[in-house]
Design a protein around this nucleic acid. Structure first.
Lengths: 239, 239
DNA sequence: CAGTGGTCTAGACCACACG
DNA sequence: GTGTGGTCTAGACCACTGA
């Protein structure tokens, strides 16, 4: 046997077993206790736990503990068609809810103004909210919309979490396509806090521009997805 | 002023300035020196450096130092059409080369056999290689192909890094589409070493199945992209 | 060989949750 | 208050590079 492994690799395996052997929803031992039991320092333990958090297998709650979560279903979607997460979830019969909605009227930043084709200083509506899948934070969505397109009254009439669905219901507005840039990123301090994950955790990120048939951008959005809860795919034709 | 910031946030800013003020290709001070100068511990410094490595702004070389790299051009591509990175790079006039090619004949794992629609125990060809953009590792690609489709002679006749281009040149083989799953992941120990990035660094990951018109899978591939070097996008029509 | 980044440790202190 | 996870430190040791 030449199974030399680094401490972190062995630890990864040990943790995987331990998580597998814990019932969904149960709490793991505390970090100092777990570190002692597995014979590693707390720093090393926490580093190893990151990947499991990314996969949605554990969920840490500051002050409360680390819990085993095990997403029972992934949200799967093709990227050819733009659909709201709510519509998508409903279609596949998955439980999704909205948490921590923040609505804000403010002046567009130069970047936002540029993206939306507005003059600097125009007012925009900022909408940010966390999407909970089976009660766990799974995505964080931010939409920036020109203020003249979406009034407060539109939101009061029942906002369920999807700006897209709201815009689709406005009969006066036609939508055509969305251009979506896809990348991977580390969770910033802010996003990490809102999704209650660790700063630096890996997230799939979409930056999207929603167009009218005339070519006007009516929604500029950032979406952050915890990889374990989603599976996005695209069919590519051979060039 | 109520600009309270955590140490890590302040550090992030300091580092950003320092990198911006360093010429491309130059070496940064050593980690102990940098940590002392910025008034933080080495662990905190290294954590803060991760994001810059992800963005392709710095490049660490074990035993040699940390260098400022600054990718002069990103590789941008739509996902509707499948193109090899080499073809893509050539089209936009970017310098791309191949490093660390590994070719291996082996028995298909159960997972690979399943993906390729083979019986367990069939032989497959494993091809893995690193893609260098401007001399820096930017992507790591792994292709698994049934052995009857790609002989050693095909490779000897000049393999430039793209399995897709190789398959396209086989007149006996027709290709139709590729199904591509997109996710974000942490660099494993192996991938991190090959791309000379840190274990745990964030990568964009594609898992793809290449089909013939008859529906046979002829290539099962994993691709890992360092976010700073690539920009992938897709146009989504409104449902 | 000296100097660099890669890994790991032990421990401190803080912020938050829950009874 | 007690116990949890979140952050940060100082330092050790190893593996690698390059003169």
């Amino acid at each position: 046997m030449k199974t030399e492994q680094s401490i972190s690799q062995r630890l990864h395996g040990n943790l995987k077993e331990m998580i597998a052997g814990t019932k969904t929803g149960d709490r793991l031992p505390s970090e100092p206790e777990l570190a002692r039991r597995l014979g590693v320092s707390r720093a090393t333990l926490r580093e190893a736990m990151r990947t499991f958090e990314t996969q949605g297998l554990i969920h840490r709650r500051h002050g409360a503990g680390t819990f085993v979560t095990r997403p029972s279903q992934v949200i799967e979607s093709g990227l050819e068609v733009l659909e709201s997460i709510e519509t998508l979830a409903k279609r596949i019969g998955m439980q999704v809810s909205m948490g921590a909605l923040h609505v804000d009227h403010r002046l567009a930043t130069p970047e936002e103004a540029n993206a939306l084709g507005l003059a600097t200083g125009c007012k925009v509506l900022h909408l940010s909210r966390v999407i909970l899948a089976e009660g766990q934070p799974a995505a964080y969505l931010v939409d920036v919309v020109p203020e003249d397109l979406l009034a407060q009254s539109d939101l009061d009439e029942g906002f369920t979490g999807s700006v897209l669905d709201l815009l689709l219901h406005k009969k006066s507005l036609a939508l055509s396509v969305s251009r979506c840039d896809i990348t991977a990123t580390n969770a910033s301090v802010e996003v990490a806090r809102l999704m209650s994950i660790q700063r630096g955790d890996v997230l799939l990120q979409f930056v999207a521009y929603l167009y009218t048939p005339e070519g006007r951008v009516v929604d500029y959005s950032f979406s952050y997805f915890l990889p374990g809860y989603f599976r996005f795919h695209v069919v590519r034709r051979v060039g």
